[in-house]
Design a binder for these strands. Structure first.
Lengths: 200, 200
DNA sequence: CTCGGGCCGTGACATCCGTCATGCGGAGGT
DNA sequence: ACCTCCGCATGACGGATGTCACGGCCCGAG
């Protein structure tokens, strides 16, 4: 079966390629390091399974998954990520992913998951599935996410207001909402919590 | 040559093991997922080269490197990390590392670096070396680092004071110093900048 | 021994931040 | 038509934060 690997860290990507090449029934026919190169490569190399990291330059693996789903629905998608955040899992499934793995897991699970999605199964870590279900959906509105994301790197209110073309008071209001919804005590904690839950 | 791999993400660790096993002259004789297991494993398996990640539970790869250096000076140490922060490079070299690689690099460089350190050479990314030299040393004092680290996850002043057994005013003073030294405009930005430079 | 620097604290002050009340317009649902 | 939710805004208030000046203790370098 023809496999594509998308992962931005060269060493990790090539190591995973070496690992999968040990499997007789799998062949790594393409490797990309950016999310926005996935869809084209999948089409060009007639890929049967795409293994995607989430955090990548250009485009997230989740968005790339949605692109693949639209352009070539028969290609299976496996999301393999460092962070087992419930929100990531939820969004990955909404984008049509067939499997969701965390890189903490033993390597054998990757090949195993690939074979299972090829048989038409879905593969999800049960612990994560439970967490995603108990958490409920992302409670932040679009603008609240925007403001929180802009505050994430330490910008002051005036900066955020300028960047998003808002009034400073509005920025304060959205942040206040976000802080309450995350049950945090200030913006920094709100950012941390939202990140952990995959809301950002 | 006998190689140890220390890396917390199972999938990545085993993939790197597969990669290195393709090299005729290298043999992966031990794998650990925690920093505090490195030294014992190095001694037990008579390891010639230890490949260490930095971010690991239990102990950082840099501290583990120092342990190995003390307990078994002839063992070479290769630090392989996700983040090419100048401060990491500096601290790794101070701990006696023989090579410093970023995981962005192509996989071939890993085996190459291992062979070179075995010949007694040091291997450092020249771009990073330049950055480390232009940056100068960490300007933060021990206590300033402590309070900044405690503020990193969104704790309020009272929390930090309690955690470090300080007065709240003292926390404010240290944070103010840290903010000035990082040329930041608030604690959150100071945390970000200190992280980027590897001062934390 | 003196001097600088790290460490810890206090007090005062200006500013920033988080909260709340309130308002308006638009989109979507019943 | 009505209600609800989102987006955007203003104004006011208290508390948190950042800055500054100042003092103390201890240690190592010169």
């Amino acid at each position: 079966m023809r496999v594509l690997l998308a992962e931005d860290q060269g060493m990790v990507r090539e190591a995973l390629a070496a690992l999968l090449s040990l499997e007789d029934d799998l062949e790594v026919v393409a490797q990309v390091s950016r999310g926005d190169e996935v869809a084209a490569a999948v089409a060009e190399h007639q890929v049967d399974v795409a293994v995607l990291d989430i955090e990548m330059p250009g485009m997230t693996g989740i968005d790339a998954c949605a692109e693949v789903r639209r352009a070539r629905p028969r290609t299976k998608v496996v999301i393999a990520t460092t962070f087992g955040r419930p929100g990531y899992l939820r969004r990955a499934m909404e984008s049509g992913a067939d499997a969701f793995l965390v890189k903490d897991a033993p390597a054998a699970e990757l090949a195993e998951a690939i074979r299972r999605v090829l048989r038409g199964e879905k593969v999800i870590d049960p612990t994560l599935a439970a967490a995603a279900l108990t958490e409920g959906a992302n409670p932040l509105t679009g603008r609240e996410r925007d403001v929180l994301a802009a505050a994430a790197d330490g910008a002051v209110n005036a900066d955020i207001a300028a960047r998003l073309h808002l009034s400073e008071g509005t920025v304060r209001n959205y942040l206040s909402m976000a802080i309450q919804k995350t049950a945090a005590r200030n913006r920094a904690e709100a950012v941390r919590i939202a990140r952990e839950k995959g809301w950002l």
